[in-house]
Structure formats: structure tokens, C-alpha cells
């Protein structure tokens, strides 16, 4: 599948933003968020900043933005519509939570509960994002039990990395949080490896035989319907070169999971401003790594249309 920049940025940034919001809800309930309107303003600005940047990027994918409001109408059947509704509805409790934290200067009473509801809505939003891909049967690499948990896990993981960096920067880092964040990074790493393993061993269904209805024997494409590119090939026939895939997978693993985990452990040992800097760097590095991970999520996915064109999963 063609890895469109707008969608890669959208899913990665909103994943981190909504993941952060979910954790803010949890930390609020646990009483781990610092009092003080300024701290609230900084944290919520980063959280909303990530979400808005992502949502803005997603509209870049549309050719008729003036009709985008229609995307809120078909939530009965469409996961994309559900995502749009959830993404926007989340702003009601999230806005109240931000008002409470910034305006009243502490996360207590109703603010806490607004945060909890916002957190749940944020989780629902990430879930709907994952379902858009997981529900597409023609793309076998997405239509697996790994996709939705992956979206939730990477969203929460990057959200936690950002939150750890913020709390450390504000001087309110709960004890041992970098270690917890590092553990979650490792969990993310293993989930990604498991997804890739599953992808490599998945039965390649359907076959060209069932795609063409020519039941027996080997069926080989000998002539395409057209001699130059078309929409189908550009959008769904994208193939990643093998050597690029190897390198990008290394970058995704190093920057997205292992590198940040290592930096977090170092930060725990270092403490002080040096530790904060490491944590900020870890969060930024992870976002870069996740962009690569998300690019690969698209680039490595194959569509059944490639059966008609006789294309393999990757080019050499």
C-alpha cells in the first residue's frame, strides 16, 4: 500500500496525542499530576498540539475538504466515520479537563473525572483508528489480530514517553516512571517483532487462482491492461525494495523502541536536568522511529489487487 505522508503523520501523531490524553486521565485519577495552572497549560498544549497536528495532516489527504463534515455521518457502518466522531467528541471532556487543570490550578474533584472520561474517549479513538485497517480484508497484513492492539500499544507507549519527558521537565517525575516507560517500550518492541513474524508466516490468501476464478494449475500474468502506471498500481501496488525494508526495520526498532528504552534507563540513573534532557530526547526519537514504523506498516502491506497484476510482496 502506498505510504501517504499525510496518513503516516496523522496516525503517528494522533496516536501519541490520544495516548498521552489517556495516560493524563489515568494519572489524574491516581493523583500523579502536578498542581499549578502553568504546568497544566504546558502539558495540555503539547497534548492538543500533537492531536491537532495529526488531524490537520489527515485533512491534507482529502481532495474535498469543504465536505469533510460529511465524514461524521456514517458512524453506523464506517470505522473511519466512527474515528472522526470519537476524535472530535473526545474534545468535550478533554476541554473540560484542560479548563479545570489550567483554570483551577489542580487536578481534583470533577476535573479528575473529566480527565478520566477524556482518557477513555481517547482510547476509543485509537481503537477506531486501528479498526479502519484491521477490518480491511483485502489487505492481509492488516487484517490480523496484531493491528488493533498494536495501535493501542504504540499510542500509549509514545504517550507515556512524552508524559515522562514532560513530568521530568516540570520537576514532578514520579519515582521509577522512566523504568516503567522503558518496559513499555520493550513490550512495544516485542509486539512489533511478533507482528512481523506473523506477517512473514501468514498464509498468503487469497491466491491468484481464486482471484481469477481459474481453479487449477499455475496462473501467471503475461500482459497488463495498460502499459503505464495507473491509480491502482500507485495506490495499492506499492512495493518496497528488500534492502530498504531491512534498513528501515532496523531504524524503526532502534529509534522507535530500543533506543528510547535505553535512554530512559540512563535517565533513571542520571537524574537531574541531564536526565530530563535524555527523556525529552527519548520521546522525540521515539516519534521519529514510529513514523518509520508507520511508513513500513503501509509500505509492507499488500492488497489483493497485486494478485491481478502478478506482483510479489516486495521488489528486490
Amino acid at each position: 500500500m502506498h505510504p501517504a505522508k499525510s496518513i503516516v503523520f496523522f496516525t503517528t501523531l494522533t496516536g501519541a496525542g490520544y495516548g498521552l490524553l489517556a495516560l493524563l486521565g489515568l494519572f489524574g485519577v491516581l493523583g500523579l499530576l502536578p498542581a499549578g495552572g502553568l504546568w497544566g497549560a504546558i502539558t495540555m498544549a503539547i497534548c492538543f498540539g500533537l492531536i491537532f497536528a495529526g488531524l490537520l495532516s489527515s485533512t491534507g489527504h482529502l481532495s474535498h475538504r469543504e465536505r469533510a463534515w460529511r465524514a461524521f455521518t456514517q458512524w453506523r457502518s464506517s470505522w473511519l466515520s466512527r474515528e472522526a466522531v470519537a476524535a472530535v467528541l473526545t474534545f468535550v471532556p478533554a476541554g473540560l479537563f484542560a479548563l479545570g487543570w489550567v483554570g483551577l490550578g489542580e487536578v481534583a474533584g470533577w476535573t479528575r473525572w473529566a480527565g478520566a472520561v477524556a482518557g477513555l474517549c481517547a482510547l476509543v479513538t485509537i481503537f477506531t483508528t486501528g479498526m479502519i485497517y484491521a477490518s480491511l480484508k483485502p489487505v492481509m497484513e492488516w487484517h490480523t489480530p496484531f493491528t488493533v492492539p498494536g495501535y493501542l500499544l504504540y499510542g500509549l507507549m509514545s504517550g507515556l514517553s512524552v508524559l515522562t519527558a514532560i513530568l521530568s521537565g516540570l520537576g514532578h517525575l514520579p519515582d521509577g516512571l522512566p523504568l516503567v516507560a522503558a518496559l513499555i517500550c520493550l513490550l512495544g518492541f516485542f509486539w512489533k517483532r511478533a507482528s512481523w513474524y506473523y506477517m512473514a508466516h501468514q498464509a498468503r490468501l487469497p491466491s491468484v487462482n481464486s482471484a481469477t476464478g481459474l481453479g487449477e494449475g499455475t496462473v501467471r500474468s503475461v500482459q497488463w491492461p495498460h502499459s503505464s502506471q495507473n491509480f491502482l498500481l500507485k495506490e495499492m501496488g506499492f512495493r518496497i525494495a528488500r534492502k530498504h525494508r531491512r534498513r528501515l526495520r532496523l531504524i524503526a526498532q532502534g529509534c522507535g523502541f530500543l533506543g528510547p528504552a535505553l535512554l530512559m534507563v540512563l535517565a533513571e540513573l542520571l537524574e537531574g536536568p541531564g536526565g530530563s534532557l535524555l527523556l525529552i530526547f527519548a520521546a522525540a526519537l521515539q516519534l521519529v522511529g514510529l513514523l518509520v514504523e508507520r511508513w513500513l506498516f503501509f509500505a509492507e502491506a499488500t492488497h489483493t489487487i497485486s494478485l491481478y497484476y502478478g506482483l510479489g510482496a516486495s521488489s528486490s
Partner: peptide, 17 residues
């Protein structure tokens, strides 16, 4: 149509352009 292209991903047969 807003041009999100999701329907073309959902069609296994490549019928939408």
C-alpha cells in the same frame, strides 16, 4: 465524496479508480 480513497482499499477486485 471527500476523496479519502478508503473504498478503493476495501474493494478486493480493484474496481474503483
Amino acid at each position: 465524496c471527500i476523496g479519502c480513497k478508503l473504498c478503493s482499499w476495501a474493494c478486493p477486485y480493484g474496481a474503483r479508480e
